[in-house]
Amino acid sequence: MVYTELLNILKEINNTKESKVPEEILEEVLAIVIKNPLDDDRVKCQDQIKMILSQRWRWSENDN
């Protein structure tokens, strides 16, 4: 429930931006954070997000 609510807000904000982030990246980042909310989870969580960004950065090429 919280996931859907937060994702909707993120999508709404994203749609107002000139350079839009692909929605699946928003979905994945949010899902990882919700699953790992504790201080002890930070390193694991950051590694997972960094992995996603390292693999999916090419979307930004269209903007540049």
Partner: peptide, 9 residues
């Protein structure tokens, strides 16, 4: 590009 991408997020 990774920095740009992260910054946008």
């Amino acid at each position: 590009k990774k920095i740009y991408c992260t910054s946008s997020l």
